[in-house]
Design a protein around this nucleic acid. Sequence first.
DNA 1: CTTTAAATTTAGGTAAACCTAAAAAAATGT
DNA 2: ACATTTTTTTAGGTTTACCTAAATTTAAAG
Lengths: 219, 219
Amino acid sequence: MNFSVSEENYIKSIYRLQQQQEVVNTNSLAQELNTRAASVTDMLKKLQLKKLLDYEKYRGFKLNAAGNKIALTIVRRHRLWEYFLVTKLGFEWDKVHAIAEELEHVSSIELIQRLDSFLDHPQTDPHGDPIPDVHGKFTPIKQLNLGEIPEKKSVIVSSVSNQSSEMLELLNHNNIKIGTGLRVIKRFAFDGSIEIKVNKQATCILSEQVSKNIFVYHD
Amino acid sequence: MNFSVSEENYIKSIYRLQQQQEVVNTNSLAQELNTRAASVTDMLKKLQLKKLLDYEKYRGFKLNAAGNKIALTIVRRHRLWEYFLVTKLGFEWDKVHAIAEELEHVSSIELIQRLDSFLDHPQTDPHGDPIPDVHGKFTPIKQLNLGEIPEKKSVIVSSVSNQSSEMLELLNHNNIKIGTGLRVIKRFAFDGSIEIKVNKQATCILSEQVSKNIFVYHD
DNA sequence: CTTTAAATTTAGGTAAACCTAAAAAAATGT
DNA sequence: ACATTTTTTTAGGTTTACCTAAATTTAAAG
């Protein structure tokens, strides 16, 4: 079956929210998509009609197996294009999200197959997120939230969940990228901010809001 | 200014028709876009309002300077993507048109700049058509129509104007591609078909309809 | 020079994807 | 338990890009 750009964006956003909350609600999806709750309800009906969604009025909704599969092909396209933009065209990793957001809707199956080969079947995108294979399978990296790493622990940055330009600009400023080694020096109970050492060199302070969006794995 | 996918497709089609006819008419544009005359009229008003079009009711229309410039940036994007698909992803030259048709609407200026550099600033697309530069400039190759080449003349294929899969399949079958040497053996007055020798080897017959869509330059 | 035919535009309507405002259901506080 | 707040849905409207059918303009033919 074939989906409109709007439908694909809804599917992708529902998928993303499901990583955090088992069942998604109308308002959070509206916020995610920069639209209004009433518009979301309209689209939910449509996606339910197309049998991609488990949806009970007033009770929330989630993608079913079919919906999940489609979400994963969109995620796959998005992350392959991001990888292309960074490794082949030389974009900075914080500039690719918006462009990949457009490219991901070009739906030729052969295009994505060939792009994948051309890029030598990359496993993760420039933000460290895994790229699903043709069947939607991927090995999730067991990631820990930087906001929960205790003092004196050393870790390596694996991915960043909030990919806004503002967020990534801040990370760039502090020389933090995928693969960077971090060590938590001090944790401030007052506001949840943490002091960290970056690559065994400079130290910096990250707000709780920032550290919650950084995922890491053990050194 | 920013244009919808529909607007861009109209602009591109008007540009293409203008290569053949100075002033474009509603019906031929409707046919080109696989839509109805009434829909075309709707869009003409819109494009005129946006000051991209010289349009006189019932009298035909053409792109003005602003419209032309936009057409050329779309053509540039389309041809760069076609070049990418063939040289980097290994697509056959007759399979890329539809995909480039989607990719061309991704509008990031930086994307196209970087793609152009990545491809080493190609001058022509896989069909032999010149790729306009950032300013819309390109050097048109002086091309002759194969349908008008006299008997016993040898020429080289420079481009193909009808890029339908069917047309290109036929050319592939006869081993004709950009750069192929052709010699007109005989011209049949009855139906305008011609007998040609391909690469000094096999001979084949091309209908007038086909030969009219092949452009060549002197050997 | 009028009649007919062809091309084009207008009028009015549809579907997709949005919106605001009001109604309905669910959650919350006392 | 019931009133209030929050969340969600419904009702009805807008815009874009289509459509058909009818009216208008231009071109062609006798």
